[in-house]
Structures are given as structure tokens and as C-alpha cells.
């Protein structure tokens, strides 16, 4: 079975600083794959390279088994949607108008498409609100709606919960997990390790542009990883009632 996202021997980064020197990883189809790592480990840079904001010097990026190097931006947009960490919501546009912008690379986005995405995320009341007046949490949920409306099998998410309160965080990640359970593939950079443990089905740990370990969240996020990658003496406990693993610093 082809992977939703496959990165092979990726080299690249910024003009004055190489971040990746042969990075290889995969995200399976229909799974919520988390990408964790400390600040500066290259998580956001990886998304920039996938979306062509930065050029790679060598290596391959395959989405649904198709090499993206020969594709134009529209073909790429038809394969992968994106939820950014930092976003701009321009003045005067309603939430509906922001979501409808997905029609640039694909068929027109109908009113019912917008409504069903808003319903799935649970923010139908925001449809006609001015996008620039939304709170940070609401805006990030709108970004997820826009990604849902793209109808791509792969959704990339770059630390979508980093500025959100606990309720908005769980609302967003729960929806992302539901999408994965329904067959979409989620590849999500997450800062909060407890969120990765709770929602992800697979996890990659990145440090200085290198893949340190991969596996189920329980296998990848261990006290050893916390010490060697995050330089933290945080402990991991198992909640007796649910059996869930929790990182406590």
C-alpha cells in the first residue's frame, strides 16, 4: 500500500543553514501521524519544503505515491491541504468566503460543502462572521474547515494548537483524529507531547533535522527521548483508570 506521504533522502533548508541531510520518513494512509521535536528541530521547515516555500537540494517527496517534484502548485494543492501555524485572515472576508477560496485549485466550493465542514468541526455559528474578528481558537478551527473543504486525502498541520486554549486544542485534534478514522491521512507537527500521546496513531521524533525515532506514540515518546532530544527530566506516568500515558514535567 502506498504511503500518504513519503519523504526519501530529503536534503535542504535555508541559504545559510542546511536543516535536512537525508531525511526519510512516511505517514501511512488513514492514520493520524504526529511529528514532534524541540524548537528548531525542523518541523515547520519540513512543511515549507513540502509546500514549495523552500527548495530542497535533493531527495523526493511522494504524496499518494506520486512524486511532487514535477508537479505545479495546483496539482500539489489537489493532493494535500494545509493548516498553518501562523495565518493571515484578511479584512472584510467572511468565514464562508475564506473557506470558499479552496475553489482556486478545484471545483467550486458549494454552500453545502462549507456548511458540512463547519458542522464537522462544530462551528456552524461562525459561517457569516468576519474572519478577522475571530479569536485565535476560532480562526484555527476555520483553517481546519478550509483544509477539510479541500477534499484531499492528506492534510498537513503545522503546530495548529500552539496558541490555543485547552478546549479549542481538544476540539481541533479530536476533529483531526475523526478525519483520520474516516480515512483521511493527517500529518501533524505537535508541540504538546500529551496531545501527541492522546490523539496520534503514529509518531516521528525529529531533532536538528534528523529522525531520531518512530513508532506508536508510546514507543516514540519515552523518558529516554525526553532526556536525549528535549533535554528534559520530565517523567511519563500511566493513568490508572484509562491506561493513558501522560508526560509530567
Amino acid at each position: 500500500m502506498k504511503a500518504a506521504l513519503q519523504i526519501d533522502g530529503l536534503c535542504g533548508g535555508y541559504k545559510d543553514r542546511i536543516i535536512f541531510n537525508g531525511l526519510s520518513l512516511t505517514a501511512e494512509k488513514g492514520k493520524f501521524t504526529a511529528l514532534v521535536g524541540p524548537n528548531g528541530s525542523g518541523k515547520s521547515t519540513l512543511f515549507r519544503i513540502i509546500l514549495r516555500g523552500l527548495k530542497s537540494s535533493s531527495g523526493h517527496i511522494l504524496i499518494d505515491g506520486r512524486d511532487t517534484s514535477g508537479m505545479n502548485q495546483i496539482e500539489l494543492a489537489q493532493l494535500a491541504a494545509f493548516v498553518p501555524q501562523y495565518y493571515i485572515l484578511p479584512d472584510g472576508f467572511s468565514v464562508k468566503q475564506i473557506i470558499s477560496m479552496t475553489d482556486y485549485a478545484r471545483r467550486p466550493c458549494s454552500d453545502s460543502d462549507v456548511k458540512s465542514a463547519l458542522e464537522m468541526v462544530g462551528i456552524t455559528e461562525l459561517e457569516n462572521r468576519q474572519a478577522c474578528e475571530l479569536s485565535g481558537g476560532e480562526a484555527q478551527l476555520v483553517m481546519l474547515c478550509r483544509a477539510i473543504c479541500c477534499r484531499t486525502s492528506l492534510i498537513l498541520m503545522d503546530e495548529p494548537t500552539s496558541n490555543l486554549d485547552i478546549k479549542a486544542q481538544s476540539q481541533l485534534l479530536r476533529t483531526a483524529r475523526t478525519l483520520a478514522d474516516e480515512g483521511r491521512s493527517i500529518f501533524c507537527a505537535i508541540h504538546d507531547l500529551n496531545s501527541a500521546l492522546q490523539y496520534a496513531q503514529f509518531c516521528h521524533v525529529l531533532d536538528h533535522g534528523t529522525l531520531v525515532c518512530s513508532g506508536t506514540p508510546e514507543q516514540a515518546i519515552t523518558e529516554d527521548t525526553l532526556r536525549s532530544v528535549f533535554h528534559s527530566d520530565a517523567r511519563i506516568f500511566t493513568e490508572p483508570e484509562t491506561g493513558r500515558r501522560i508526560v509530567i514535567s
Partner: peptide, 20 residues
């Protein structure tokens, strides 16, 4: 005209929606 709408967004969003 739609490309001009997309230019108003952040660069990552604009690219992910198909804009060069």
C-alpha cells in the same frame, strides 16, 4: 481575480490552495 484573493492570505495558505 481569485489569485489576488489568495495573495491576501499567509504564504503557506496561499501555496497550499494552489497559488504559485
Amino acid at each position: 481575480a481569485r489569485a489576488l484573493d489568495l495573495l491576501l492570505l499567509d504564504e503557506g495558505s496561499a501555496r497550499s490552495l494552489g497559488l504559485n
